[in-house]
């Protein structure tokens, strides 16, 4: 038993070393982007998608939900930041965390839908995102800017917003790494696999699901806020665009739901692929990306990391 415990400690050491290594590489690489004059816009969105896919992973890979209306949190975050900054003259660095709070409040309002599961949850989630979009579209034009949206004026600062996005990504990844090892993470996974059995084993399923749901809602809302700052403009058409949910789902699934590294790798691979295809075939971009996604799902149904770990189960102890 002692030998096994030592082996476990050694596996833990490798796990955390690997996590620290991946984190450090990402951090150094992204931190040097503006300094080395690399493409800030591309890398800003790469970090945004890594964060979105990883946060989505909590709702889907950990808790077993498929929120097709995930963009609602992103949109509400974008509008919260824009309204607070433009209309209430809040400082940006106060408005951004408050956009995360708005995401949590929206998640609490949606919480009764957590009783649903499978496709029913997905459809209701999609409908609720549509309702959010309609509500904001029909709010007074003085508040939301109507169909023209809101412009944040002279507050745009690409490099500052780039580094804030980096900080958001780091906090999101650290949270998900913690979650993957925590008791809450285990309870969420048990709930995902069999909610009734988990409940009969003593897991308070509604509470556990709610915690996972709130974590999953906070980060896209902050992402929406940071992106509003970065682009300097928010309108309902882009803030609640269904493509945002689609891309988040595709990137997370491509990497492998339920793992920490999966959505990171999926976002990196697919955003690069998207960029490459867009450069070569600007008119066929979405078509080719769609085909690439179909091929990926057909041949790697558990995503890149998920398939690798299925083939090499002994690596599960080392790969976050």
């Amino acid at each position: 038993m002692a030998a096994r415990s030592r082996a476990l400690d050694s596996a833990d050491r490798i796990y955390f070393t690997l996590a620290a290594l991946i984190g450090s590489v990402l951090l150094v690489y992204f931190a040097s982007v503006p300094l080395l004059g690399l493409n800030v816009a591309f890398h800003f969105y790469l970090m945004l998608w890594i964060t979105m896919a990883s946060a989505f992973n909590v709702a889907s890979g950990f808790a077993g939900y498929m929120p097709f209306g995930y963009v609602a949190f992103y949109g509400i975050g974008a509008f919260t930041t824009a309204i607070l900054v433009k209309k209430a003259a809040f400082p940006l660095f106060l408005a951004l965390p408050l956009s995360g709070v708005a995401g949590i409040v929206l998640a609490l309002l949606f919480a009764p839908t957590l009783r649903l599961s499978g496709i029913y949850f997905g459809i209701v989630s999609l409908a609720l995102a549509g309702i959010c979009r309609l509500v904001i579209t029909n709010m007074p034009e003085q508040l939301t800017g109507g169909s023209f949206g809101l412009q944040l004026g002279s507050r745009a600062h690409p490099v500052q917003s780039f580094y804030v996005m980096m900080a958001v990504m780091v906090v999101a990844l650290a949270t998900i790494l913690w979650l993957s090892r925590s008791r809450l993470g285990k309870a969420l996974r048990a709930t995902r696999d069999d909610a009734d059995a988990a409940e009969m084993m003593g897991v308070n399923v509604p509470i556990v699901r709610l915690y996972g749901w709130l974590i999953s809602a906070f980060f896209p809302a902050v992402c929406g806020g940071v992106e509003a700052w970065y682009t300097n403009v928010v309108d309902t058409e882009t803030a609640f665009n269904t493509l945002t949910t689609a891309k988040t789902v595709i990137y997370a699934v491509a990497g492998g739901l339920g793992t920490v590294t999966g959505p990171i790798l999926g976002a990196v691979a697919m955003v690069w692929l998207d960029e490459l295809i867009w450069r070569q075939f600007p008119l066929l971009n979405l078509l080719i990306l769609g085909l690439a996604t179909i091929i990926l799902v057909l041949f790697l149904p558990r995503g890149i990391v998920g398939t690798l770990l299925r083939k090499k189960p002994q690596w599960r102890r080392y790969i976050p």
Binding site: R189, R192, R316
Partner: peptide, 14 residues
């Protein structure tokens, strides 16, 4: 009704 995508140890920890 085991927790299918969890390790045996994690199943027992639930």
């Amino acid at each position: 009704r085991v927790f299918r995508r969890m390790s045996l140890i994690d199943n027992l920890l639930v």
